[in-house]
Write a protein that binds this DNA or RNA. Structure first.
Length: 821
RNA sequence: GCCGAAGUGGCGGAACAGGCAGACGCGCGCGACUCAAACUCGCGUUCCCUUGGGAUUGUGGGUUCGACUCCCACCUUCGGCACCA
């Protein structure tokens, strides 16, 4: 036993012992309640970041708390190992992506161990291992066989110089140039694989089975973006069908023009000779913008008249067709009917280009004039200028829930002009990536038979290691001399492999299932493990994944359920998000800003326990905030003082029963509070409660409490309370100093005793007109009348009551007496 | 522009159900220990005038005996989404 607290002496040796003893190995056991605690797996970028610690250390503490509560807790870890940075490293530094990735994983594994987490490393899964992506591929074929995967043309950002697809982050600047060669990026249509996420749009809006934060539910709801309305069949003057979706079929009579997305297929047909040049120029300009840019640029609308006209089916009006980039090809039909009188954007567009504005909804008592309206009108009212519908009331409701809109939809359906429809912002999930470092898509194309999935017995389709990185930037899979040669599983003729790989969100959609049985060979997971462990009880991770990853994994589970592979439709019952740790300057941490905080340095200087505790303490976990390197001395001192207290804990002394009773009350109150704080993810107050209690204990120790019979029990309880947050020091003091049976991490969380928490006397505050004037100490069970009497007579209150009439006295039992004069 | 979150001492934050604002910690000040410094320990630390009081939780209103907490309007910061028909 050393005299001073020196984390370097104890932390790694305990880590090694826990590991050797398999202390945190969690095995399915029907006799025990299970708890699956999952935290988002990191991408092996090279170094563990303080942000990783911020995500994982409090999650680990909470998992440990659950374990002490008697749950059989599984806390696994893995690596999301495919992805672009590995390929960049390959191109820039000539390292093979596999080598780079696995080297980083080794390093991060070591770093993760230095945190002293209760990770069960037997369950580790790495998405780039063939035994992992074997099943990623199998899932793909399952989705394909169940009609949830299909191919269609879709544009990608393409660098004509490098001859390669670019990810969004590889396109730089407002002029959108290639990060490698500076060439301006173009859009190119490629045949790509998609998953039908839209099949599950409505189900994804149902959160009734899960306890997720409201802000995430709101983000996902907006992401799915359901709107109710109608499809309406317009036609061009030449009789071409032109369908649009509208949420406001009640305003059809006010449609004075139409707008198509610049890339709409009909544009070429309807554009006349006169407008051709302008239209083509506009299309070119739009092509070079991202959707975000098209949306952002300026409030001012831009567009070009095509020269073509459409016929409004409700009144046979002839209306001009324009193109404008505020209409997106990816939503609805890529075409809108424009009703400037009742839509903000259409209004601005109409004013700018001098197009007609016809009001068709008018609130009673007002009179709109299309020529002078200052802005569009979006509220309720009566229909006007709308033939037989004039006078129909339109309220604020959406779709058929709005009777006015419902009447119009009924009529459209009867006249076969249109029908009720629901439109979603959600798009199908584009899976294909024109990359090397990813899971190969297990599909084979045969001239005669078309596309066929690779048969189960031929999986996995291995990623070839011997590849060349040619400066063209094209995927090495495409350039590989033999890899793409295959035999058609259907007819046995020569065929060609798909050379695209999968989006890495596919790997992370099911990793929690692979953790169940990472070595399992008969399927993606062992059914027995699934039955015991699933679903995930708590999922923790960054809010930035609120839409993409967390939508995909929900979709994935619903699809697997319908295919019959899994049972539950929701993979994660509870979700909680941590905030972001910013640099000390308040900016996002980044290497280029030079404000990155390295956890390794902190561990070397202070020890893992201090860093863990500080990460729990320094900010509200869900909010995060700027790092403060000074504050960490606070948690360091806390652990040093704790150590010192235990080092001199035994010894003679005598203390009053009252003091002991007070200490016990504080201990049980803290137990109660810390327990509920863990449940609520309020980690900062867990540490401050422990600090407060330490102050009480040290004070009591100085007053002779350590001679008391109950002191040893108090000392043990305090260590148990510390154990989840600071596992090393708690173990050291428990096992080596107190000589209690190893390990503290196999002990139960002590129960807070309500009797121990009770007080005999309480302090009531005395207010006069709501202002604090005195405090009175009274028995805890005092009745209202007595409390009132004592308060009225109290020294502090008296001077304010003299010569005044007491109008009312409010007594809140256990809290206060307020005298109103 | 829309959606969401948040504004409390010099700083991070606490106040769980409308009831003592500022717990806990950092920093700072004073003192003890020391030849000295560091460490450690003790005391103090929202602001303003000083027997004592007054003000104070982004701003302005409101509800209430009583508001950091509830309601209305506004301001600021951060995050997300982006002309969604």
């Amino acid at each position: 036993m050393v005299k001073e607290y020196n984390p370097g002496d104890i932390e790694s040796s305990w880590q090694n012992k826990w590991d050797a003893d398999g202390l945190y190995q969690a095995d399915a056991d029907d006799g025990k309640k299970k708890f699956y605690a999952l935290t988002m797996l990191p991408y092996p970028s090279g170094d563990l970041h303080i942000g990783h610690w911020y995500a994982m250390a409090p999650s680990d503490a909470r998992a440990r708390f659950k374990r002490m509560q008697g749950y059989n807790v599984m806390f696994p870890m893995g690596f999301d190992a495919f992805g672009l940075p590995a390929e960049n490293a390959a191109i820039q530094r000539g390292v093979h992506p596999m080598k780079w990735t696995y080297h980083n994983i080794d390093r991060m594994r070591t770093q993760l161990r230095s945190m002293g987490t209760m990770i069960d490393w037997r369950r580790e899964a790495v998405s780039a291992d063939p035994e992992y992506y074997h099943w990623t591929q199998w899932f793909f074929t399952q989705l394909y066989k169940n009609d949830l995967a299909y191919r269609k043309q879709s544009p990608v950002d393409w660098c004509p110089q490098c001859n390669t697809t670019l990810a969004r982050e590889q396109v730089h600047g407002d002029d959108r140039h290639c990060e490698r060669c500076g060439t301006q990026v173009i859009k190119k249509d490629l045949e790509q694989w998609f998953f039908k996420t839209t099949n599950y749009a409505d189900e994804l809006l149902d959160f009734s089975q899960i306890d997720w934060p409201d802000r995430v539910k709101t983000l996902q709801t907006n992401w799915v973006g359901r709107s109710e309305g109608a499809d309406v069949n317009f036609s061009t003057e030449d009789g071409e069908k032109l369908t649009v979706f509208t949420t406001r079929p009640d305003t059809l009579w006010g449609a004075t023009f139409m707008v198509l997305a610049p890339e709409h297929p009909l544009v070429e047909k309807i554009t006349n000779q006169e407008q051709k040049k302008a239209v083509v120029a506009y299309q070119k300009k739009a092509e070079q913008k991202t959707e975000i840019q098209r949306a952002t640029v300026e409030k001012e609308k831009s567009g070009v008249f095509t020269g073509g006209y459409a016929i409004n089916p409700v009144n046979k009006n002839r209306i001009p067709i324009w193109i404008a980039d505020y209409v997106m090809m990816g939503y609805g039909y890529g075409a809108i009917m424009a009703v400037p009188a009742h839509d903000e954007r259409d209004f601005e567009f109409a004013r700018q280009y001098g197009l007609e504005i016809i009001p068709v909804i008018q609130p009673e008592g007002q009179k709109f004039d299309g020529g002078t309206m200052p802005e569009s009108y979006l509220g309720p009212g009566l229909m006007i200028n709308s033939a037989q519908f004039d006078g129909t009331e339109v309220s604020e409701g959406k779709g058929r829930k709005n009777p006015g809109i419902g009447k119009v939809i009924d009529w459209l359906e009867k006249e076969k002009i249109g029908q009720e429809a629901i439109s979603y912002k959600l798009r199908d999930w584009l899976i294909s990536r024109q990359r090397y470092w990813g899971t190969p898509i297990p599909m084979i194309f045969c001239e005669g038979c078309g596309w066929n999935p690779v048969p189960d017995q031929d999986l996995p389709v291995l990623l070839p290691e011997e590849v060349e990185w040619l400066p063209t930037g094209e995927s090495p899979l495409k350039l590989h001399p033999t890899w793409k040669d295959a035999i058609c599983p259907n007819c046995g003729e020569k065929a060609t492999r798909e050379t695209d790989t999968m989006d890495t969100f596919m790997c992370s959609s099911w990793y929690h299932l692979r953790y169940l049985s990472p070595k399992y060979k008969e399927g993606p997971f062992d059914q027995n493990e699934y039955n015991y462990w699933m679903p995930v009880d708590i999922y923790t991770g960054g809010i930035e994944h609120a839409t993409m990853h967390l939508v995909y994994t929900r979709f994935f589970h619903k699809a697997l359920r319908d295919i019959g592979i899994t049972e539950a439709g929701e993979p994660m019952l509870q979700l909680r998000n941590q905030g972001m740790v910013l640099g000390e300057d308040g900016e996002k941490m980044s290497k280029s800003r030079g404000n990155v905080v390295s956890p390794d340095d902190l561990v070397a200087a202070y020890g893992a326990d201090t860093v863990r505790a500080y990460l729990m303490f320094f900010a509200r976990w869900d909010l995060g905030g700027p790092w403060n390197s000074q504050g960490i001395t606070g948690t360091e001192r806390w652990l040093k003082r704790t150590w010192a207290m235990y080092a001199q804990s035994s010894g003679p002394g005598s203390a009053s029963d009252e003091l002991i009773r007070d200490v016990q009350r504080e201990v049980h109150t803290a137990l109660d509070r810390i327990g509920s704080d863990y449940e609520r993810f309020e980690f900062n107050t867990i540490i401050s409660t422990l600090m407060e209690l330490l102050n009480v204990l040290i004070d009591a120790q100085g007053r002779g409490a350590s001679g008391s019979k109950v002191w040893p029990e108090i000392m043990e309880t305090y260590l148990l309370m510390m154990a989840p947050a600071v596992p090393h020091i708690a173990e050291e003091l428990w096992t080596n100093l107190l000589g209690k049976p190893y390990s503290i991490h196999n002990q139960s969380w002590p129960k807070a005793d309500p009797d121990m928490m009770k007080k005999d006397q309480i302090t009531l505050i005395v207010q006069v007109n709501g202002k604090l004037r005195d405090r009175i100490v009274v028995p805890v069970d005092i009745n209202k009348k007595d409390a009132e009497k004592i308060a009225l007579a109290s020294e502090g209150a008296k001077p304010y009551l003299e010569g005044k009439k007491v109008r009312k006295v409010i007594v809140v039992p256990g809290r206060l007496v307020n005298i109103v004069i």
